[in-house]
Computed example of a mutant assay.
Amino acid sequence: MENNLQKRLFQFSIDIIKEVRNLPNSKEYQVISYQILKSATSVGANYEEAQGAVSKADFANKVGISLKEIRETNYWIRIIIAIDNQKINWAVLEKESNELIRILGTIYNKTSKNKKVVSSRIPDTIS
C-alpha cells in the first residue's frame, strides 16, 4: 500500500520530468536537465527501496540516500531559477523540494542507527 510520501515523491518526479521538457536545448541546460532528472527520480526510487528494507539500518540508509538526492535536486532547481527567475513552475517545485527535505530529514534522523543528526535545514535561497 502506497503512503502519502510515496505519492508525493512520485508526483514530484513526474513534475520535474514535465518541466525539464520545457527547458531550452542549449548545452548548459542539457547538463542541468540530465543532472536534475537523475537526482529527482532517484529520490522516490530510493524511498521505494526503503519500503522493502530488511532492517532499520537498511531503511535509514535508503532514506538517507533519498535525502541527499532531494537536496541535490533542490540545488539544480535553484540554478534554473537563478538563470531565469521567470520560471514560476520551478519556484513551486523548489517549495515542494524544501518540504520533502524536511520530511526525509526528520525520518532519517529518527531512524538512523548512529543517531548522527543530519541537517534537514532548507538551503538559503539564491537572491
Results as ranks from 00 to 15, higher is better:
S39T: 10
E48W: 11
S97C: 07
Q30D: 04
I70V: 15
E48A: 10
V117K: 00
V118T: 05
I83S: 06
I17Q: 09
L9N: 01
E72Q: 08
I83G: 04
K62C: 00
T111Q: 11
S66I: 05
A53Q: 07
Q11K: 07
F10I: 11
A60Q: 00
N61E: 04
I79N: 00
Q86L: 14
I80D: 00
A45S: 12
L5C: 03
Q35L: 14
S97N: 06
A82K: 06
D58R: 12
A53Y: 01
W76Y: 10
V54F: 14
K18D: 06
K18Y: 03
Q11N: 11
S13P: 13
K38L: 13
L100A: 09
Y29I: 01
I107A: 08
F59G: 01
V31S: 02
I77P: 03
I83P: 15
Q30R: 10
T73N: 08
Y108Q: 03
N22H: 11
Y29L: 02
D15W: 03
I32S: 02
K62S: 03
I103F: 12
A53N: 05
G44V: 08
A50K: 04
L67N: 02
K56V: 10
K87S: 08
I79G: 05
A45T: 11
T73W: 09
Q30K: 14
N89G: 13
N109W: 08
R121Y: 11
A50L: 04
L5D: 01
E28Y: 13
K110A: 07
S55L: 07
K110Y: 06
K27N: 10
S97R: 10
S26R: 06
K68W: 02
F59R: 02
N3T: 08
E96C: 05
Q86S: 14
K56C: 09
K113T: 05
E69D: 03
